[in-house]
Amino acid sequence: VTTYKLVINGKTLKGETTTKAVDAETAEKAFKQYANDNGVDGVWTYDDATKTFTVTE
């Protein structure tokens, strides 16, 4: 299990959150659900070296 980070650069929501997941794909699903629940819809990137997803509106 690895800790992944999400950086949110939204129009109305900015911040960070983390999740523990077995792989990046599982973390991405959780983060996309989180973003959707919070009304954030943007461009996604992922940096494997830092295990960090970024979504920018």
Rank of each mutant, 00 (worst) to 15 (best):
T19D: 03
K29R: 15
L6K: 00
K20T: 15
D47S: 06
E16G: 10
T50C: 04
T45N: 08
G10Y: 06
D41A: 12
T45S: 09
T52N: 02
E28N: 05
K32S: 04
A30Q: 15
E28H: 12
Q33I: 12
G15E: 08
T54L: 06
T19Y: 14
A27K: 00
T2N: 13
V43I: 10
K20P: 07
K32Y: 06
V22Y: 15
K29W: 07
D37A: 15
L13E: 07
T12C: 13
T17W: 14
T52A: 03
K5L: 09
T56R: 05
N38E: 06
D41R: 13
L13H: 13
T17C: 11
E57P: 08
G39Q: 09
Y4H: 02
K20M: 15
D48M: 08
L13R: 08
T26N: 09
D41V: 15
Y4T: 01
A27F: 00
T18A: 07
T50Q: 06
E16K: 07
K32D: 02
T45G: 06
Y46L: 02
T3D: 09
Y46T: 01
A30G: 05
V40W: 08
T19M: 14
D47I: 05
G39T: 04
F53E: 00
T52I: 07
D23Q: 04
V40I: 14
T56S: 08
A21R: 03
L13Q: 08
L13N: 06
T56A: 05
D41H: 14
V7P: 00
E28Y: 15
E57A: 07
G39R: 06
D41E: 13
T19K: 06
L6W: 02
T2M: 10
E25Y: 11
E28K: 11
K20A: 13
D23T: 07
K11W: 09
I8S: 03
E57N: 05
T19N: 05
D37Y: 07
G15M: 14
T2S: 13
A21M: 03
T45R: 07
D48F: 08
E57S: 09
G42M: 02
T12E: 11
V7F: 07
T50M: 07
D37E: 15
T26Q: 13
D48N: 08
L13G: 09
Y4M: 01
T52V: 07
Y34S: 02
V7R: 06
T17P: 03
N38M: 15
A35R: 01
T56I: 07
G42V: 02
V7E: 05
E57D: 08
Y46W: 04
E25W: 13
G10R: 04
Q33P: 02
E16H: 14
N36I: 15
G15W: 15
A21S: 06
F31I: 02
A49R: 08
V40Q: 03
A21Q: 05
A35P: 01
K20E: 15
K14Q: 12
A35W: 03
Y4I: 01
K32M: 08
T50V: 06
T2W: 09
V55L: 10
A35V: 10
